[in-house]
Each structure stands twice: as C-alpha cells, then as structure tokens.
Design a binder for these strands. Structure first.
Lengths: 245, 245
DNA sequence: CTCTGATTCAAACGTTCGTTTTAATCCTAA
DNA sequence: TTAGGATTAAAACGAACGTTTGAATCAGAG
C-alpha cells in the first residue's frame, strides 16, 4: 500500500500544514523544516513553489481571504439591493461581515477553525510584511462596510463608528485566537470540550454577535472636559475614573 | 563627558529596551543582540541577570503586572467595602478592571502605552511558556472580578458572563495592540497624530469603555434550536444566518 | 522511444540564534 | 590597602535558521 503523498499535490499539502503550524506556534516560531517535515515534502519545495517563507504565509492567507472577501462583498451587494433606497440595519451589516467570517469556521473546506484562529492571531502580528499584506487585502471590504455602517447609524459620528468597528474587529479576532485566555477566565476547560470545530464555531457565533451589536449601539461616550484634561497633563493628580457614567 | 550608562543600572536598562523591542517586533523576532546592542550592555548581561531570554520576557511583564494586579485588587476591595452588602454596578467593575489598566497608559512610570501595546500583543502569543506565565499571573485577579461580575449581573447566566468577560478582554487587548488595523479601518492616520501617549490613552479609554459596557449588557443570545443544529451537522445545507435577531 | 520542461531530492551554503566560558574589571567590606 | 564577591567583557560554542545549488527523477508531447 503506497502512502497518500500524491493524493493532493505538493503545493496544497504545504499550504495545509503551514496553516496549521503557523496557527499553533506563530510565524517566527514555525520553521520551514517543521512544515516540510510534517508535509513529507522536500525542504526546497517551499522555495520552489512559493519563493520564500514570507510568500508562503501570504499564500496561506490569500487562499482563504479570496473567498472570504468576495463573499462579503457579494452578500453586502445583495442586502443593499433588497433594501433599495433604505439603509440597512446595523445587525444586518454585522451579520454580513462577521457572520461570513464565522461560517468559515464551520466548513473545513474553507479553512475551518484552524484558519480562523490563525487569522485572529496574525492580525496583531507586528511584522511589516504581514501588516502591509493585510492592509492591501482588507482595504476594499473595510471601506464598503464602513460606508454601510455610516448609513445604518446616521446619528452616530463617523469617527465613533470607526472606533467601534475597530473594537468589534478586536473582540472577534481575540475570540477566535484565544481559547487560552478563555480557559483562564472560565477557570476550567470550556464545556463540551469534545465538541467538533463546526459546533464550536456555531457556539461562538451565537455568543459573540449579540455582544458586538451591544457594543456598537452603546450610548456615546461622555468626554471629560478638555480643560480638565489639560490640568491633568499639567501635573495635577489624575482623576481615578476614566469614564464618567 | 562620560556617557549615561550608569544612570540606571544594567538590569533596568535591559528591561526598558526589551519592553520596547518586544512590543515593536514581537518576542521571537527580537534577538538578544538587538536588546543588548540598543541598551549598550554586553551580550552576556541578559543571561547573567535574568538567566535566559524567556526569563527576561517574564521579568518584563512581572515588573508591570505586579503593580497592575495589586492595584486592581485594592480598588475592588475598596468598592466592595463602600457598597457593603449591595452588589456593585457592572460599570463600576469594568471601571476598576479596565480603568486601572488604561491608567498605566497615561503614566510612563508604569510602562505607558508601550507596555499596554506589548501586553495586548503578547496575550495572544501561542508560545507555551507565555501562556503558562499569564495563566499564573492573572488567575487570582480574574477569579475575583468574575465573582464581582456574577454578583453585579444576577440575572445573566454565569457562562454568558464568562464569555463576555472574554470578549471584553479581547476588545481591550486588540484596541491596545493594534494601531495598525485602526489605520486600515480609518483609512488614514488617526486624527491628532501628534498626540502624546497619555492623551492617546485617555482618548482610547473614553471610547472603549462605553463599548465594553454596551457589549456586556447586550440582550442575551437567541440560540438556534438544538434539533436544527443536529440536522445541519448531519449534512443539510447550513443556514446563512448565524444569529436570528 | 526520446526529448524537454517541471518537479523532487540530498547536500551544503553563509548567517544568526541563545547560551556558555574564561578572564578582566569594578566595588565594597575588612 | 587589600582580599573577594559582583559585574562586565570578549570570544567562541553548537545548533538551527532560510536559502541555494546541481544532479536525479518524473510526466507528457512529438
């Protein structure tokens, strides 16, 4: 009985293993020898097929983000077509943006939870080539959804919406990346530890979406008086409360 | 004129530089030669004073978290003493937990925004020794604040509170770590780019605290019927809406 | 079959990594 | 002033890193 080496071609086997190892250990801590070893391909195959380790990481993401971002645009187009001249509801926009993401976690063919965790962790990676890459991949989708949020929340200052979009991305990114801190918070293994990845994705979706919507629609912040801020900066004892509410 | 090498002793100069470089490039991508070079100390000084690179990272965090966590416990003690038998308001608990954190960003002596960004980025690091370290450092404080949140939200299932605590940690962690994605979302440099770090911390605090509170108090999720879930897992086409609301 | 381009392979490249060693230097207490 | 522990210094260690090379092997077209 021969092995399964040629069931998938070398390129995709490298991508699959790299996706999993980058998720488990991070980009820097994952060596090309770990990847090629586990994929049972020659060390030189990565440089032959992708050019470099950096290019491999980019291709790992491009493979998944191509589907994700195109799907996000299609769904937003559909929603806006249905709504006609009316503005979408904030919940519709969030559902389109984050729901599409979470659906990847339920479908192994789209990367499953492995890719979602990798994405969550890599979004905060400080490496220049990663930040540049994500900026390019996300620019169009973010711009479209930003406009949709502006229209859906006409009474909220645009700057505030931008910040809250940022916070929502953070909640989601972290929720995906970190089973770790969740275990610290929970004080034990999450319940139903033997749940499949698809079930885990559904559970996460059901819990995180209301949280995001609640944060997005929260009362606007009460800013501290600018004069008080200046006094503090001048050396007065800082007030203990950051938020007055 | 002699240099300023001995104004601070070697240990603290290593810690300061390491804190900044770990923040800017991450743990793996920061070499000991970069640290000792910039700190103008001998390469062997890190192993002499701290034992290893891993132990150095731990000490970088211990130095700041000692203050943070003790302050968090003291403030919670005070609040609970004032409240007597009554439960605290959720906003008070959040203010104590996250407000204390954000105050570090305003005070360079406590690490300032450099440390906050390092903390935000490192919380999602997959390295085992880092996760183990944070689990130990955070256990007591998390347990205390979890109990306080349970009491302040008696009608919300504890499991739901745990998840939302997790999401709030994520929003905050990401908000601290990522000026990067914010720039993508904003489409340009954040306004008042020349603001001081202390001002940046205050602005962030004013914006993120209402978001967290809104997420924490959001309506409870409407779970999909368990039977429908099982049908989906059995191979039916997955529903397109992750959240029904 | 033979030729040709694509792919795989083993081996080595030069560099950088964290750590260790041994000697020199500094600082303080006797 | 001098002994002795604490700190710094320069140099080297072996291991692991990403990458490159050149030959071997494969697969499909003529």
């Amino acid at each position: 009985m021969t092995d399964t080496r040629n069931n998938l071609d070398t390129r995709e086997r490298i991508l699959d293993v790299a996706e999993r190892l980058f998720m488990a250990a991070g980009y820097e801590a994952t060596s090309m020898r770990m990847i090629t070893g586990e994929a049972e391909v020659n060390l030189a195959a990565i440089n032959y097929h992708f050019g470099s380790k950096e290019a491999l990481l980019r291709e790992v993401f491009r493979r998944r983000l191509a589907w994700l971002n195109s799907e996000r645009l299609v769904i937003l187009d559909e929603l806006e077509a249905q709504a006609g001249a009316a503005a979408l509801k904030p919940s519709q926009v969030l559902e389109a943006f984050f729901g599409t993401l979470l659906r990847m976690g339920e479908d192994p063919a789209l990367g499953g939870m492995v890719f979602l965790r990798l994405l969550g962790r890599t979004l905060t990676d400080p490496a220049d080539f990663i930040r540049t890459f994500f900026a390019g991949e996300y620019a169009e989708v973010i711009a479209r959804y930003k406009r949709a949020l502006f229209r859906s929340l006409p009474d909220v200052p645009k700057e505030e919406i931008i910040w809250r979009f940022h916070f929502m991305l953070g909640s989601m990114s972290y929720a995906l990346a970190g089973t770790d801190m969740l275990q610290i918070v929970a004080g034990c293994e999450p319940n139903e530890a033997s749940a499949t990845n698809a079930e885990a994705a559904r559970r996460l979706a059901a819990r995180v979406m209301p949280f995001l919507l609640g944060g997005l629609r929260a009362p606007l912040p009460q800013f501290v008086d600018a004069v008080a801020q200046r006094d503090e900066a001048a050396g007065d004892a800082p007030a203990r409360t950051v938020l007055t509410a």
